[in-house]
Simulated scan of single mutants.
Amino acid sequence: YGITPSMSRRGNPYDNAMAENFFSILKTECIYRRKPATFSEANDMIDRYIQFYNHERIQTKAGVAPLTLRHSY
């Protein structure tokens, strides 16, 4: 299919660290707690979680939600 993986070098996927972290949190806090029965239900759960993650969930390092931090610059 001509797909190229997104990697900096072999064995150093540092450019994916933020995405990997987010998807780990998404699975832990959303998907594993209540397994969706259908694709539609999973889609709705993920949409709601992303909204919650960006607007309400307090990030440990920053002490505020991600959008609050971005808008403070």
Rank of each mutant, 00 (worst) to 15 (best):
68 T>Y: 04
57 R>P: 01
56 E>C: 00
67 L>S: 02
19 A>P: 06
52 F>I: 01
38 T>K: 10
30 C>L: 06
58 I>F: 10
37 A>P: 05
3 I>C: 06
62 A>Y: 07
20 E>I: 04
27 K>E: 00
47 D>I: 14
67 L>F: 00
26 L>R: 01
48 R>P: 05
30 C>P: 00
1 Y>G: 15
6 S>N: 13
33 R>I: 08
35 K>H: 07
42 A>E: 09
4 T>D: 10
5 P>K: 04
23 F>C: 15
61 K>E: 03
23 F>W: 15
8 S>H: 14
17 A>L: 10
9 R>M: 09
59 Q>W: 08
49 Y>Q: 05
32 Y>R: 12
22 F>T: 15
41 E>C: 06
44 D>C: 04
10 R>F: 12
7 M>W: 03
10 R>K: 13
59 Q>P: 08
45 M>F: 07
17 A>E: 07
21 N>F: 09
44 D>S: 07
64 V>E: 02
6 S>E: 15
35 K>W: 05
20 E>D: 07
68 T>A: 02
57 R>H: 10
22 F>R: 11
23 F>E: 14
17 A>Q: 10
4 T>I: 11
70 R>E: 11
21 N>Q: 14
17 A>W: 03
62 A>M: 04
39 F>S: 13
15 D>H: 11
30 C>F: 00
67 L>K: 07
13 P>Q: 04
63 G>S: 03
3 I>R: 07
23 F>T: 15
16 N>D: 10
12 N>G: 00
64 V>M: 01
73 Y>F: 08
23 F>V: 15
54 N>Y: 03
28 T>P: 08
10 R>N: 11
6 S>F: 13
18 M>L: 13
38 T>S: 12
19 A>M: 13
24 S>H: 06
28 T>M: 12
29 E>A: 09
64 V>R: 02
58 I>P: 03
9 R>I: 02
22 F>N: 15
55 H>K: 02
39 F>Y: 14
72 S>R: 14
48 R>K: 11
2 G>K: 08
54 N>M: 12
36 P>F: 06
4 T>L: 09
52 F>W: 02
61 K>T: 01
23 F>L: 14
58 I>N: 05
2 G>F: 06
42 A>M: 09
59 Q>I: 10
14 Y>N: 15
13 P>E: 00
22 F>A: 14
33 R>F: 07
37 A>G: 08
54 N>H: 09
10 R>Q: 13
39 F>C: 15
